[in-house]
């Protein structure tokens, strides 16, 4: 395995080193370098340290494991592959992603899954283990967002205004969500076993990745949120 020491390298140098590296490689002493693995395919990359913004943007088909927190815009416009974060992630994770998986052990910032979409066989999946900030799934157009609310220490599972402008895809929140105020254009209801079947494959994978018990995870009911096509999204900020 090739080891890239990122200390004192700028983002361009890190990405060049990645391009020239073996299929399996590791970045050490990462500190804020942006665009790591942007557009890359066929790599297995482990990152120690803090990767910069837009980690795995346009990711084609690579696997990225981060052993710490990641910053903003993880998986921006990602197409295929998997990003596994052992810490928390910043704002706007999975911005406009249209395929692949982002699995996060900890919390996500604001606007996770903003404008996530799907196309034919491409269904992006984002799973957040902890809680997320406001505007979760803003303008979601496709794909699946799952928030598990593990170890949230009294914090609500999502902040304000989840699903604002959501008009496609599905969101699963673990819990009854009775205190969460959803916008009028979405429908929130308890997930049936049929609903859960749809995400079982992903949940099992997530539990294997982070050594959680799937049974324990499923001992709490899930809420599923989908757009209500009879009452489409109109506006949030300004009444035009």
């Amino acid at each position: 395995m090739k080891i890239i020491n990122a200390a004192n390298l700028n983002y361009r140098a890190v990405n060049e080193a990645l391009c020239n590296a073996d299929k399996d490689c590791m970045i050490e002493s990462c500190c804020g370098q942006r665009f790591i693995a942007a557009g890359m395919s066929d790599k297995n990359i482990t990152i120690n340290g803090i990767p910069g913004n837009a980690l795995g943007s346009y990711l084609n088909n690579a696997n990225i494991v981060v052993n710490a927190n990641a910053q903003d815009a993880v998986g921006d416009t990602m197409n295929e592959g998997k990003i596994l974060i052992h810490g928390n992630i910043g704002d706007a994770a999975g911005y406009a992603m249209r395929g692949g998986k982002i699995y996060v052990k900890g919390n996500a910032g604001y606007r996770a899954g903003i404008h996530m979409k799907a196309y034919k066989e491409k269904i992006p999946v984002m799973i957040i283990g902890g809680h997320t900030g406001s505007f979760l799934g803003e303008y979601q157009a496709g794909g699946i967002i799952i928030v598990l609310g593990i170890n949230t220490v009294g914090k609500p599972i999502v902040g304000n205004f989840p699903c604002t402008g959501m008009h496609g895809g599905k969101m699963f929140l673990r819990g009854n969500c009775k205190d969460i105020c959803f916008p009028e254009q979405v429908t929130a209801r308890y997930a049936t076993s049929k609903d859960l079947d749809e995400i079982m494959e992903y949940l099992s994978e997530y539990c294997r990745d982070f050594t959680y018990s799937i049974d324990k995870l499923l001992s709490v009911p899930f809420t599923v949120i989908t757009p209500d096509s009879k009452n489409p999204y109109k506006q949030m900020y300004v009444a035009n």
Partner: peptide, 16 residues
Amino acid sequence: EEAAIRTMEPNAENIW
């Protein structure tokens, strides 16, 4: 960015 905090203190805690 968290990277800036890690530059000042690599072992910073309670990052939020």
